[in-house]
Design a protein around this nucleic acid. Sequence first.
DNA 1: TTATTAGTACAAGATGTATTGTACCATGCC
DNA 2: GGCATGGTACAATACATCTTGTACTAATAA
Lengths: 114, 114
Amino acid sequence: MQETTTEAAPRTYWYPEREDITIYGILAALSDPTRLGIVRAIAAREECCPFDFLDVTSKQNLTHHFKVLRESGLVQARYEGRQKFVSLRRELIDDMFPGLLDGLLNAVAASEKR
Amino acid sequence: MQETTTEAAPRTYWYPEREDITIYGILAALSDPTRLGIVRAIAAREECCPFDFLDVTSKQNLTHHFKVLRESGLVQARYEGRQKFVSLRRELIDDMFPGLLDGLLNAVAASEKR
DNA sequence: TTATTAGTACAAGATGTATTGTACCATGCC
DNA sequence: GGCATGGTACAATACATCTTGTACTAATAA
C-alpha cells in the first residue's frame, strides 16, 4: 500500500521574510572571513556550489556557514541533482538596504589593491 | 618623598594599528544594535559622550561596547575632565575601505524611510 | 575633606558561535 | 541492487560575546 502521510519535501528550507531581515544579521553574517569570501565569490559569478569551498573548511562547516547566510536573508539556494547552487538575494537586499552590498564589496575589493 | 616609579598615564588605551584593522572586526563591531546606533550618532554629530546612551543600556555595558568599537579601529576617544568624547577615525577607515562607512550608513538610513 | 559624578576593572553567568566527529539522507552511476 | 558523491543532522567541544554586579579611579564641586 502506498504511504499517504504528507511529508516535507527534502532539502526545502526556511527563508526569512522581509520583515525578519535586519542589518545586524547581515553584518554579522558578513563579519566572518569564510562567509565574506563566499559572498564575494557569489557576487562575482552569480552562483556557486558549496563544493567549491572545500579547500577552505570542512563540508559540515560549510553547511553551517551557508545556513547562517541563508537565515540572514543574504542568499538563496536551489538543488539540481546532488548539487546545491547558491545565489544572492540581490533585488531584496538592494531594495531594503540600497547601496549596502555594492558599497561593501567595492570597499573590500579596493582594500586589497594596495 | 616623591614617588619616582613611572606609571602609565590614566585613561590611556591601546588602539589598533592600520595593519591590525580588518573588515571582519569592523563588520562585527557594527553588527550590534547598540554599537551601530552609537556609530550612527557619532557620524551625525562628530563627537559623542557615552553618557548620552545611558537610556540604552548600563554604563558598564557602554564601556564594553565602546571598547569593542575602539579595538575594531572604528573610533578614538579623548578625555576632558570627567567626560569622554568619542569620534570616528574617518580618514583611516575611508582610506582603508573607501565608501564602506558612507555606503553602510546611507543604506541603514534609507531602510528606515519606509 | 567629603560627596558626587563620569567612567573603568574585574568576575560571573548566560548565551551565541565556530569547528569537528559520527551518522545519515538523497541523488546518480555501475 | 550496490556504491560513490554532495550535502545534511545532531551532539560535543572550545571559545567568544553580552550583560549584570560589585568595587574602584579620576575629576569636579561643596
